[in-house]
Write a protein that binds this DNA or RNA. Structure first.
Lengths: 251, 251
DNA sequence: AACCCTGGTCGGCATTGTCGAACACTGTTG
DNA sequence: CAACAGTGTTCGACAATGCCGACCAGGGTT
């Protein structure tokens, strides 16, 4: 595979930097972070500005992401097959389980949320479509990692006392998920919150995403602290349904 | 202003093409659309693929937008000041008016929706954050055009019988909006739907966005087919409130 | 099996973008 | 108040870089 176009790869790195960093960044911060000369960085940023991918705060001169990216991002949702096939099954799952449903896929060792239906009750919730979740601390993420060909595990930062922060423990958990066909996380990212997820298979049986629910531990888990079997069944059935729609073998 | 980085500008054009076009495109379609040699187009697309901005359907070989863009798009929302300042005022406006609220800004002669709160009732609605609306056929758009320094009017395609499709009629309508300080659209984009919008001013009094409501004509308009004065007042007050938050003079 | 179409590759030429230094500006500091 | 340390921006020379067109490889269809 021949090399990449240098300037485009650099431009992408700048955009990722702006997305990851805390909001605005100065030109020099960008140049230093990517180890580029000022002039070079400026040229790239200028064109990114011209095409609307980057905006500049006139007073401080700092740069941030631009409006054009928003439309590109939502356009991606329109063509994403995993999402479009999932939508019909996510709503029933939310209704039956009474919990929030999320569908995610792996984006360089993180979980990208491509669809999200709120918990049926009327509590205030924020839409996290487009958010990146830690793979090792969420049911969605662990399921995706379990079936991931490339073995990257991500950062393994501990969020709570129950987070699986050691590679050995995590790989064993992933093996268990492969064995069972589904996974869960119990207060591993947020205290008081648990989740259940199952893999979605696309054409050829390859795992292309995961669907899962999450909610308060006391509702998601039974008296023994284990995920309720009825909820697990609902999630796995939804995953199979989506897989079937995608043309995969559905488990 | 020195020139742009050629390859980056071309890459952006390809992304826009993929976003605008109907889903997947083949390499040759891309090359032809932008009048590039095959090889050149392939090099750019390959790097876009490597950085995750573009995905390829393995069976058909065609290209589509990639997952990385989704996260960039939502990251833009996080740093967008117009959106963050508006959120607190959009909910009350929706509650008081009983209609859906949208906040938009101008993105090369189209209206980019940066925030959207659903109509308070429980009817099925689709989130159109990130969508591009026609400027000449929506209240949001006409308000934005009215205060736009660069005079581009967009495409002026007629959607309904009442769409303002002629430049002369439209420019006169824009002048009226500047005079009144608010604007409306009555069945100009969709039959049975009307909207009211007012400009949001940022630092220095410059119009940086617009906020508006939209809903069924019979609720938004009175017996004479004119926008209800109470609703207009609510919208204008919300616009002023957001402007004040942004540090502008608020009208 | 010849033909069209597709996407992908390769290498020579020169266009293109990179690079470092100099510029203009702001706010801070000695 | 001047020198300074920051910033973003511009410029021009050099050559590395990415562009281009011809060539290769696979899949359908005729």
């Amino acid at each position: 595979m021949p090399g990449q176009v240098q300037s485009i790869a650099r431009a992408a790195a700048i955009l990722r930097l702006l997305a990851g960093g805390s909001g605005r960044l100065g030109l020099l911060e960008i140049a230093r972070a990517l180890d580029l000369p000022k002039g070079t960085a400026h040229g790239i940023v200028r064109t990114l500005h011209d095409v609307g991918f980057v905006e500049q705060d006139k007073t401080s001169g700092k740069y941030q992401l631009g409006a054009a990216l928003l439309h590109l991002g939502t356009s991606y949702l329109d063509v994403n097959e995993l999402r479009s096939r999932s939508i019909n099954w996510a709503d029933p799952l939310a209704a039956r389980s009474g919990e929030a449903v999320r569908i995610g896929t792996l984006l360089d060792s993180k979980v990208l949320v491509v669809h999200h239906v709120f918990r049926p009750d009327d509590t205030l919730q924020t839409l996290d479509v487009g958010a990146l979740l830690p793979p090792h601390a969420t049911a969605l993420g662990k399921v995706l990692l379990a079936y991931n060909a490339r073995g990257g595990l991500g950062d393994l930062v501990p969020y709570t006392r129950r987070t699986l922060a050691s590679p050995r423990v995590l790989t064993r958990a992933l093996a268990a998920i492969r064995e069972a066909g589904w996974g869960s996380d119990i207060e591993e990212m947020t205290v008081g919150v648990a989740g259940i997820a199952a893999p979605i298979r696309g054409y050829g049986g390859l795992v292309v995403g995961a669907i899962g629910i999450s909610g308060p531990v006391e509702r998601v888990c039974d008296a023994h602290g284990q995920p309720r079997i009825t909820l697990v069944t609902h999630v796995r059935e939804a995953a199979r349904a989506v897989s079937r729609d995608l043309g995969g073998r559905g488990q």
